[in-house]
């Protein structure tokens, strides 16, 4: 049992958790093991994986997250798909312009504007374009991750 406990503590250290949190979880796991309370052991290990891993140090990347962009870009006709975001989220194009979406993410995405267009599933490097012949505002979203949304404003 103590070897198992030691193994878990080593894993906590590998996850670079703050000392206090690690101590609390360690005590919780040790106490649960002594009481053979498997549900609490499971919960504690689950917390280690979820909270501990989310505390791992990662290089900060400057990206635009959904909702951050308030001003639509004017004149641009290209949209990049990266980090689960359409960037820019809104663009303004002239009537007759073709907008090109370029996939630059680790995960597959597709682009759907109901009643207007639907792309194939795009992988990294993949492109999709659509020509807007009528003025108006056209919303679209990712078919795989529907909370990824964007808008094309055609003037």
């Amino acid at each position: 049992m103590f070897y198992c406990f030691y193994d878990i503590i080593k894993k906590l250290e590998m996850l670079e958790m703050p000392g206090r949190l690690r101590s609390i979880l360690s005590l919780l796991i040790l106490y649960s093991m002594s009481k053979r309370n498997f549900a609490v052991i499971f919960l504690a290990i689950g917390l280690v994986v979820l909270s501990g891993c989310s505390l791992q140090k990662k290089p900060i990347e400057k990206i635009n997250t959904a909702g951050e962009i308030s001003q639509p870009k004017t004149g641009a006709d290209a949209v990049k798909i990266g980090h689960f975001v359409f960037e820019p989220k809104e663009i303004v194009v002239n009537t007759g312009a073709a907008v090109v979406w370029t996939h630059d993410d680790n995960v597959a995405h597709s682009i759907i504007s109901p009643g207007l267009f639907e792309s194939e599933v795009l992988q990294r490097g993949g492109k999709f374009s659509f020509k807007f012949d009528k003025p108006g505002e056209y919303s679209y979203y990712c078919g795989i991750h529907p909370s990824m949304t964007g808008k094309i404003i055609v003037k």
Binding site: C53, S54, L55, F84, V121, I144, H145
Partner: peptide, 19 residues
């Protein structure tokens, strides 16, 4: 249903590398 690549639906978890 969606016929998309295996594993592409799951969102990213902040701090955990998807690969």
């Amino acid at each position: 249903e969606a016929r998309v690549p295996f594993g592409s639906r799951a969102p990213d978890i902040i701090g955990i590398a998807r690969d």
